[in-house]
C-alpha cells in the first residue's frame, strides 16, 4: 500500500466519506493506478484505527460508483476508467476557476482567512440547497 490516508475527526464529515474522497483523489492523481490492490477491510481498519464498518462502507460505495472492484476473498482492486481520468481534467479546470475567483476576492479586499471561512461555510451547505439557489 503506497497511499497515505488522513482521516480527521474535526471536520463535519463522516470518516467513510473522507476515505472515499481520498481513494478517489488518489485514483485521479495517479497515486493509485488501474488494477492496484487496496488493503483488506480488517487491515485498513486496524491501520487507521477506525471501525471496520467505516472501511466497509467506503469500499462498498466506491464499488457502487465503479471505482473499486471487490473480489470475494482477495480484496479490493482499483479500476480507473476513462471517466475517472476526465475527472482529473475537471479538477484542473476547477482549480483554474478557483484561482480566478480567489484573485477577484482578494482584489475586493477580502483577507485570505475571510475567503477560507466563506468557502468552508459554503461547502457545509448540502448539495441540493446550492442547486436550488
Amino acid at each position: 500500500m503506497n497511499v497515505f490516508f488522513k482521516l480527521t475527526t474535526t471536520t463535519g464529515q463522516p470518516l467513510y466519506l473522507q476515505l472515499m474522497q481520498q481513494i478517489r483523489h488518489a485514483a485521479e492523481t495517479g497515486a493509485l493506478q488501474d488494477g492496484d490492490q487496496l488493503p483488506g477491510i480488517r487491515t485498513l481498519a486496524e491501520e487507521l484505527v477506525v471501525s471496520p464498518n467505516t472501511v466497509a462502507k467506503a469500499y462498498s460505495e466506491l464499488e457502487h460508483d465503479g471505482l473499486l472492484e471487490l473480489r470475494q476473498g482477495s480484496g479490493a482492486f482499483v479500476c480507473v476508467k476513462r471517466r475517472t481520468r476526465s475527472l482529473a481534467d475537471h479538477v484542473q479546470v476547477a482549480r483554474r476557476r478557483l484561482r480566478d475567483l480567489v484573485e477577484r476576492l482578494r482584489e475586493d479586499g477580502l483577507l485570505d482567512e475571510e475567503i477560507r471561512r466563506a468557502f468552508e461555510a459554503e461547502l457545509l451547505y448540502p448539495a441540493e440547497t446550492v442547486r436550488k439557489q
Partner: peptide
C-alpha cells in the same frame, strides 16, 4: 477494531471523547 472485524459486537463505556471519535 480487529475484534469488530471478526464480527464481535462491542459496547464500551468511556469518558474519553478522542478515543471514541474514531472507532465508534
Amino acid at each position: 477494531v480487529a475484534l469488530a472485524a471478526d464480527g464481535v459486537t462491542i459496547f464500551f463505556s468511556s469518558h474519553q471523547i478522542a478515543e471514541v471519535e474514531r472507532v465508534a
